[in-house]
Design a protein around this nucleic acid. Structure first.
Length: 656
DNA sequence: GGTTTAAACGCCCTCTGCTGGAGCAAT
DNA sequence: AATTGCTCCAGCAGAGGGCGTTTAAACC
């Protein structure tokens, strides 16, 4: 059999037989669990042996049957490997499908699956064979590809819609319309299959079974079974765990007996290949031979294409234009990458530790460092180490003091562009976005500061926070502060017997004594009792302290002395200097403070009381001339004049 | 031998979040 | 006047996106 052409009538198949082979599902499933590897678009059988000899590959049909994914079943860097896409052109030969040549045509989906328990699947129909598929577009290898010697049988399911029948000498023709049930190729027919070259030489003992049968759900399918496969010169093939490359740096080693697949291994590096042309080209990379020089920057390149790409970077020539936007690129690779970033959002590199996926392998590598904590880039001036070069470079500005970013408005300079951007936004922009706290009315300019606000004021505190004015406790600072504000200017304590009200309970206690007549502060010298301690203190100083000097406020007009500034002011308003020759200033009211009438300690006994007193008796505080005993007025009853008249003070002064 | 493709390295950017000092008002 | 609490602000680093460029290998 020189070759075969599968011809399938139209309206036979519309879908891939098995639902699990649907593209998205298949891809998603494998993306989660297995890695994917990119396989070059066109591999010869030998190359595949050399490079993927023991990789179990799995191909799956992608969307529209136009993409092929190869998945290594045993691959440690699974998620790092990229997606494989292979495309098939019209009239592609079966062996090309098997080796995933980048040609395709829409119409047929060819599925290779395991034929039965213990049987290994395979899609490999010898190089040079003439079998071809009309309107073949994609191949999905459901299970794995193994070496031929491991293959017992394989079923190939060809599911096709609107496939034209084809025939020809030595070609394999299958028509589902015939519903043949089983097309069997015995050894006599095998010769018509892979005919020449590569595997064609190995197919002498291959047995092909082609079966056309009704599929599930009433859909027809063609089943191609390859069984009892024995490859010629198999003894030349290495065992799976052995390197089967040929030492071939010297010409005498570059050839072997005809029909034996050769591989070439570089002496300098670990490169191997099966083509002499590839090998020879590879050898050149070790010679540093770069004959093509850029006339603009004198940089040299090995090939004209490399030079051309390089020159394009000088000239700005960008031949690869994106069809979905206005971007254009120097190389096709840039365009592909751009499309993945911006349009297809294909991210083949998946992190095995989280859901992160990236377009580029280097990004995944960088991301993985966030899991491992690896910091390969050490600062030479401090202990800082970075996970990538840019962060280290940015960090170095902290040592150099460089501030490369300047505000175009105020010319302030910044170390990072983001900092400058925030500066411009907050300082020089209108309609600056604000962030409203969800728990209070606070509006904060920056989100990060709102976070601080929430942390400081709205976070639950395990330890109770007590109100300064009452017994209430809170676990949130904001609630506490709001509560304490309710105490401000609040006179919560109201007298039951009169209209008196005050802020503090102790003031009310003292006030109550005015109704009960209680005077708990007794003078130890004369047993006189007082309702307030401060009054007792004044009494003791006035009558029992020989060193006591009372404060006297002189009238600026007449010079008359008063014990209280208010009394003196009241007097001075009516004072006629003409009637009192002692008045000398004649320049308006003048006050003279001789000595505090009340000891400071009394005033400092309770700051809250002092604050209240300063409010209630604000007039008395004018000029800071008279220290006021808070308790004196808070109690609302007693007055110094009850005990100390002006005349008494003057009398005492005279005695002194 | 030219072209294509994949990979690698590098650079720069944005967004995000944390930190600590400054300024201000309240206490 | 000192202290405290809060917001503003710049500095700084973490993470990730996107692109420029070069190179090796495969493909044709």
């Amino acid at each position: 059999m020189a070759g075969m052409e599968i011809s399938i009538p139209s309206e036979q198949f519309t879908k891939i037989k098995e639902p699990e082979l649907m593209p998205e599902e298949a891809l998603e499933e494998k993306g989660e669990d297995d890695g994917v590897c990119r396989v070059k678009g066109c591999l010869s059988p030998g190359e595949l042996e050399a490079q993927c000899a023991y990789e179990a590959l799995q191909a799956r049909v992608l969307e529209g049957g136009q993409e092929l994914v190869l998945v290594p079943a045993e691959e440690s860097e699974k998620h790092i490997l990229p997606l494989q896409t292979a495309r098939f052109s019209e009239d592609v030969a079966l062996q090309d499908i098997g080796w995933l040549t980048p040609q395709h045509q829409e119409g047929v989906q060819l599925v290779v699956q395991q034929a039965g328990s213990g049987l290994q699947p395979l899609l490999w129909l010898g190089e040079g064979s003439q079998q071809s598929l009309h309107q073949c577009i994609a191949v999905s290898i459901q299970d794995e590809v193994y070496l031929l010697q491991d293959v017992q049988a394989t079923q190939v399911h060809v599911l096709q819609e609107d496939a034209a029948s084809a025939s020809g000498d030595g070609k394999f023709v299958v028509s589902l319309a015939e519903n043949t049930g089983l097309v069997k190729f015995d050894k006599g027919q095998e010769g018509q299959l892979p005919a020449a070259g590569g595997l064609g030489e190995r197919t002498e003992e291959q047995l092909f079974l082609m079966e056309a049968r009704p599929g599930d759900g009433g859909r027809d399918e063609i089943v191609l079974t390859i069984s009892n496969v024995n490859v010629g010169e198999q003894e030349d093939k290495p065992a799976p765990d052995q390197a089967h490359v040929e030492k071939a740096n010297s010409p005498q080693n570059q050839k072997k007996a005809k029909g034996v697949k050769r591989t070439f291994r570089c002496d300098v590096c670990r490169f191997t290949c099966t083509r002499i042309s590839s090998f020879n080209r590879h050898v050149k990379i070790h010679s540093n031979e770069k004959p093509h020089m850029c006339h603009l920057c004198l940089k040299a390149f090995r090939t004209v294409t490399l030079l051309r790409n390089h020159v394009n970077t000088h000239t700005g020539t960008r031949p690869y234009k994106c069809g979905d936007c206005n971007m254009a690129f120097v190389t096709s690779g840039e365009l592909v990458r751009h499309r993945r970033y911006k349009h297809t959002h294909e991210k083949p590199f998946k992190c095995s530790m989280c859901k992160y996926a990236s377009v580029e392998a280097s990004k995944l590598k960088r991301h993985v460092r966030s899991h491992t904590g690896e910091r390969p880039f050490q600062c030479s001036l401090c202990s800082y180490a970075s996970k990538d070069t840019y962060k280290l470079k940015r960090h170095m500005r902290t040592h150099s003091g460089e501030k490369p970013y300047e505000c175009h408005v105020c010319h302030a300079r910044f170390t990072q562009s983001g900092t400058m951007k925030m500066h411009v936004l907050q300082k020089h922009s209108e309609n600056v976005p604000k962030h409203q706290c969800p728990h209070c009315a606070t509006i904060i300019a920056r989100k990060s500061d709102l976070r601080v606000h929430l942390r400081n004021l709205h976070t639950y505190q395990a330890t109770e926070m007590k109100c300064h004015y009452c017994s209430a406790v809170f676990h949130e600072r904001y609630a506490l502060s709001q509560h304490q504000k309710t105490h401000k200017n609040e006179k919560r304590f109201k007298c039951e017997h009169c209209s008196y009200a005050c802020k503090q309970e102790r003031h009310m206690t003292v006030h109550t004594w005015t109704h009960t007549g209680e005077k708990p502060f007794a003078c130890l010298s004369c047993n006189k009792c007082f309702r307030q301690k401060q009054l007792l203190n004044v009494h003791v100083k006035k009558y029992h302290d020989a060193n006591f000097i009372p404060t006297v406020y002189e009238c600026p007009q007449c010079g008359k002395g008063f014990s209280r500034w208010t009394n003196m002011r009241r007097h001075s308003g009516k004072c006629d200097p003409g009637r009192d020759k002692s008045a000398t200033s004649g320049k308006g009211p003048r006050m003279k403070k001789r000595q505090p009438a009340i000891p400071k300690e009394a005033g400092k006994e309770d700051e809250a009381a002092a604050e209240e007193a300063s409010t209630v008796k604000g007039e008395q505080c004018l000029g800071e001339m008279v220290p006021v005993d808070p308790g004196e007025t808070a109690a609302g009853g007693e007055d110094l004049d009850e005990d100390l008249t002006c005349e008494m003070i003057l009398s005492m002064m005279d005695k002194l």
